[in-house]
């Protein structure tokens, strides 16, 4: 299999494409392919030129941390959860996420996610107590990996300047329903940075690697505050 990767040494340098031959196990994931290329032997491209090791972000290797989000054959996904058996093309094409600045190769700077959550002051303050009706939805939304895939596919999310995207809607929902003292502030931020900008394409729902029912978060929030 040919693995074609969009490379960029650092944030200031120019991007270029480089291809590698992968002759390891085919019953595996994209994360394992990257590991194989990096550590099996010295790395050469398909032209026989020596190549830098491929930089990508990785922690859990089992769809729990969200580090390895990238674009795989045109689709944003987690490398550790994308299997070669599900890729019909003979070529594996890897690119960094497009809506975040590139740090190096497949690593991007996703700090805007945290800056926006901080900017909107999303925290609960005084705890409202457990609400049986909300348990399940709260449990599901708390699984958010902050991987950025929902922002990558969202037609309304650009650079996160005003519209903060689905992960923000989920965090707003859980904070709002758990807060006793800050409901008003959270609702206001939700309106400003999500409700007024979402065109409900729901691409975020399909792409979420942990299947967060974002539509339910949006529905519940809208019902509570409008």
């Amino acid at each position: 299999m040919i693995v074609k990767i969009k490379r960029q040494e650092n944030s200031d340098s120019k991007a270029y494409w480089q291809s590698f031959k992968y002759n390891g196990n085919m019953d595996t994931t994209v994360a394992a392919v990257l590991d194989f290329l990096n550590y099996n032997d010295d790395l050469f491209d398909t032209e026989g030129n020596p190549a830098r090791r491929i930089r990508w972000e990785c922690s859990c290797m089992q769809k729990t941390c969200g580090a390895c989000a990238m674009i795989i054959n045109g689709m944003p996904a987690l490398a550790c959860n994308t299997f070669l058996r599900n890729i019909s093309s003979k070529e594996l094409v890897l690119e960094p996420l497009r809506k975040f600045p590139v740090v190096s190769d497949l690593i991007v700077d996703r700090s805007i996610i945290y800056e926006n959550l901080k900017k909107a002051e999303l925290y609960i303050g005084e705890y409202a107590g457990a609400d049986k009706k909300e348990y399940e939805q709260q449990y599901q939304t708390a699984k958010c990996l902050k991987c950025g895939l929902c922002l990558e596919v969202c037609p309304n999310y650009n650079k996160g300047e005003t519209f903060f995207g689905a992960m923000f809607a989920n965090d707003s929902y859980i904070s709002y329903t758990q807060s006793e003292s800050r409901k008003k502030e959270i609702a206001s931020e939700y309106k400003k940075h999500f409700a007024s900008g979402c065109s409900k394409s729901l691409a975020c729902v399909d792409i979420c690697p942990v299947q967060i029912p974002t539509l339910a978060s949006i529905g519940r929030m809208n019902k509570k505050i409008f």
Partner: peptide, 30 residues
């Protein structure tokens, strides 16, 4: 918490930490 207790604790603590990030008492260096 289901079979992802650690994740659920982390999520809750991140939001608690954010409260202090907003007040300037907690600074994150990534």
């Amino acid at each position: 918490s289901g079979a992802c207790t650690g994740k659920q604790i982390v999520t809750a603590l991140i939001r608690k930490a954010r409260q202090y990030e907003c007040s300037g008492m907690l600074e994150r260096k990534l």
